[in-house]
Design a protein around this nucleic acid. Structure first.
Lengths: 218, 218
DNA sequence: GTCTATACTGTGATAGAC
DNA sequence: GTCTATCACAGTATAGAC
């Protein structure tokens, strides 16, 4: 944790106080902060941790972001950006999109999934509240209106639950199959499991429903 | 949070250093710790927070549990206890059980869901690792062996993902419908969505389908 | 713009009085 | 068994030198 070369000096020497590159320092801080907050949560990461990971002085956090909270706000992206496409997505594309929602996110070293960051930062109540309102607005309200039949809101939230569960199994629990397998191996099952949620009831056209296994495009 | 009667004195006075009730103090600490760790995570909870919530002196934590980590270990129950019934559960009962897994857990003020506690305590790496190994052992390994057809491990983990997603939508994201509706309103949809994961392929009763996947035995 | 030094608070942990 | 006092340190944050 405190290895001698932790600072990762630029090879030779470094008497000058780094380059004078405010934009670079700012970006480095934000990148490191996103990683740390996502991995260890808000309370589990200190300003010094972030600064060290960014190879930048800790005081710069306060210069550029005012406080630890300010930095968190700056890097805790709204989850709404992830969910936005659902607004105008044809219903038949929803299963595939749900799958990508869970599988497209970066792996481990890159910028972490915003939902994971918020779940791991329960003390940032505003961030959790924002996640709740984002999910509610897009799934429970907007998308539910596009669903025919009863219990539309429940079904819409079950859809979100499905995506959330797969995401966390991959990124947080890191279960062997889901975190290693390509999304193509999961797609058919997601399609079949999500499908009943999108239809009004069970079998409205039992003959036509037949087998979607063979077809389904691609 | 700091109301004058927060201490909840036993009615009249309290000059004596509480009752001499080691078992009671111990239990109060464990109960408060479970709540706090579940709500705010390991790093978001201090020993003094727990002691105050339990109306017990903070030093007793070290007397009874040795350290903060010790207390966490004592209250961070193995998730395996929750999953254990899956081992000998008839396949047709699995959908209902999955639902109860997500809906039976206590609401908000009682002892929180162990999975939520672990997700919110990323710095207790052993706890997270134990959750992973529990899920892996019971779902990916044991239960997957009971599933016919290909991709049994993926399907078993998708089942776990489904339960995890519903649980977190209710307890962490607190989405309006799922966190208020009774489980009976969700049951039919969970049944239909989970069902395809339990069967080898697509159709269950329609035998004359032109499904290219293997045949649905049974 | 960058870094050092430091103030101040909160935290985990311990010793010892009662 | 319970509680007070306290230590050593990590944490956020600020002031100011360079």
């Amino acid at each position: 944790m405190d290895s001698p070369d932790a600072a990762k000096r630029s090879g030779s020497d470094r008497i000058t106080p780094r380059k004078y590159d405010s934009a670079g320092s700012r970006a480095a801080l934000m990148s490191a902060a996103a990683r740390c907050f996502g991995k260890y949560g808000y309370d589990g990461t200190s300003i010094r941790d972030i600064a060290k990971a960014a190879d930048v002085d800790a005081a710069l956090v306060y210069r550029y972001f005012g406080s630890k909270q300010g930095l968190f706000e700056a890097v805790a992206h709204h989850a709404s950006a992830l969910f936005e496409p659902l607004r105008h997505l044809p219903l038949e594309d929803v299963p595939d999109w749900i799958l990508r929602l869970a599988f497209d996110g970066p792996g481990e070293d890159e910028i972490p999934h915003p939902v994971l960051t918020m779940l791991r930062s329960p003390s940032r109540e505003e961030a959790v509240a924002r996640l709740r309102s984002d999910v509610t607005e897009i799934f429970s309200e907007h998308f539910a209106r596009r669903l025919d039949g009863p219990d539309a809101q429940v079904r819409a939230e079950l859809l979100a639950a499905w995506a959330l569960g797969m995401t966390l199994m991959r990124l947080a629990v890191q279960t062997p199959a889901l975190s290693s397998v390509p999304d193509s191996a999961v797609l058919p099952y997601v399609r079949k499991a999500v499908d009943p949620l999108l239809r009004p009831c069970d079998e409205r056209e039992e003959t036509n429903r037949a087998c979607r296994c063979g077809r389904g495009g691609e």
